[in-house]
Design a protein around this nucleic acid. Structure first.
Length: 413
RNA sequence: CGGGGAUUGGCGCAAUUGGCUAGCGUGCAGCGUUCGGGACGCUGAGGUUGCAGGUUCGAAUCCUGUAUCCCCGACCA
């Protein structure tokens, strides 16, 4: 991609309404643009990052047998009345043709349970799991912190269905491991911990994944002896580790980036979702649900991975792998050489953003590269050529080096 | 949902107690000089000051209503 053609521009000034690091840097870098409070447009750079996060999640869900589907955001309110959750305060209500009552779904138990019920009748059909990656709607009383708490946000939600609790428990552990793998691949594995979840009606059956971060909304207690983490809300008073008894828990701030629940039979009961066992007896279906929000995770990654110049993307989710800067491009020879490198990178399927602008100074190009945060920066200029080739520098390192043009591709791959 | 602050060219801001043709920076367009860490000069385009009423000789400024954004809190399967 040529920078001169890219839709979305960087901005030197801080947006007046950016209330968090992720909102500020993502907006200034041209990744996202706010539409209304808690709702964002994704520009090409932002969509590339979001898509990469989604694809990593997708691969890990597929590995554990999740089958991808897509459910509608817009559905009848009726199912919500069935479960009694139609009074939920974050639910968006609207009217359709003929004055029908509709909702924009904030989560999909009310959709997936009746859907599964249309195909699942026997123990032979169980267990199975489906997931989707889709936008959710929650009418938050107060949207805030950029991508961290939105009114429309992207979510991966996996639902599993089982013959009995034991089978649910086994799958729950499999999903837990898949989540660890996802955070690892997203580049935040070492700062993301499993915690006993707060609140909710199934607290003893749920866990959260929390990314440690100063700007996080949640406070959790970390036991450094046994690596256990607990959300502040559930042990606010005793402050002792329920596993090893350690009473010296460390208090840290964190952002919730995933949440897994054993729903058990809460929803299958509401919808009368039964199956026939081996003996032809009717049994209730056990369910689990597992959420992981790509958009919120993207925000959390920016909160954790940045410096005073801009974003520092983990390589797996960076919008491009190489940020190629051409300087002295008025010199026709240098221009041709940089275009040549750009095209060779494309031929080798290396994602490259090529800053081909003729009318801006080197300083602007460097500042933009730091802001956008692509892992590897290449600079081709009169100076670099005089010094023997092209300069290579990692976004997260200070030093740079000159490498011969003949070796540049080996160095990158 | 309670309390507070804000809204002025694309973006960031200014405009004494109501008073000249609403300014500045940045960005944008053109010309020239620059050219490795957000260079400089000149020229130019771009605003019925969120919206709707009201007070006044005169409103960005005062009053009423309304919308939106942000903050604090409550809330957050």
């Amino acid at each position: 991609m040529r920078y001169s053609q890219l839709f979305g521009k960087t901005s030197k000034s801080i947006p007046s309404d950016a209330d968090s690091v992720n909102a500020r840097l993502l907006t200034q870098g041209g990744f996202i643009q706010k539409e209304i409070s808690g709702v964002y447009n994704y520009l090409p750079l932002g969509l590339r990052v979001l898509t990469k996060i989604q694809n990593i999640i997708r691969e890990e869900m597929d590995k554990i047998g999740g089958q991808e589907i897509l459910m509608p955001a817009l559905t009848q309110e009726e199912s919500w009345v069935t479960t009694g959750r139609h009074t939920m305060d974050v639910l968006f209500h609207l009217k359709g043709q003929g004055n029908t009552s509709l909702v924009l779904n904030p989560t999909h138990e009310e959709v997936v349970t009746p859907l599964a019920q249309k195909y699942i009748f026997s123990y032979r059909d169980l267990p199975f799991s489906v997931y989707q990656i889709q936008n959710k709607f929650r009418n938050e009383a107060r949207a805030k912190s950029g991508l961290l708490r939105g009114r429309e946000f992207n979510m991966k939600d996996l639902y599993s269905f089982h013959t009995d609790e034991n089978d649910l428990n086994q799958y729950y552990e499999i999903v837990k491991q898949a989540y660890f793998e996802i955070y690892k691949r997203l580049g935040i594995g070492d700062i993301t911990v499993l915690t006993f979840a707060s609140g909710g009606s199934f607290s003893q059956y749920s866990h959260e994944f929390q990314t440690l971060c100063e700007s996080g909304e949640d406070t959790i207690y970390l036991c450094e002896k046994c690596q256990l983490a607990i959300n502040k809300e559930i042990i606010d008073i005793q402050k002792t580790c329920p596993k090893c008894g350690n009473d010296n828990l460390k208090t840290v701030k964190a952002i919730e980036v995933g949440n897994i629940f054993k729903l058990r039979t809460k929803y299958s009961k509401s919808f009368n979702f039964y199956y026939s066992d081996k003996n032809g007896q009717e049994k209730i279906v056990e369910m689990g649900c597992y959420g992981l929000g790509p958009s919120r995770t993207m925000g959390a990654i920016v909160e954790s991975c940045h410096d005073n110049k801009g974003i520092i993307w983990p390589a797996n989710i960076a919008p491009y792998q190489i940020h190629l800067i051409g300087l002295d491009l008025h010199d026709e020879k240098i221009k041709l050489q940089s275009v040549d490198i750009y095209q060779k990178l494309i031929e080798k399927n290396i994602e490259v953003l090529y800053d081909d602008r003729l009318d801006v100074t080197a300083g602007i190009k460097f500042a933009d590269a730091d802001l956008i945060g692509i892992p590897t920066r290449l600079v081709l200029s009169k100076r670099s050529l005089e010094n023997g080739g092209i300069e290579i520098k990692k976004r997260n390192e200070e030093k740079s080096e000159i490498i011969s043009l003949d070796f540049v591709f080996e160095k990158i791959v």
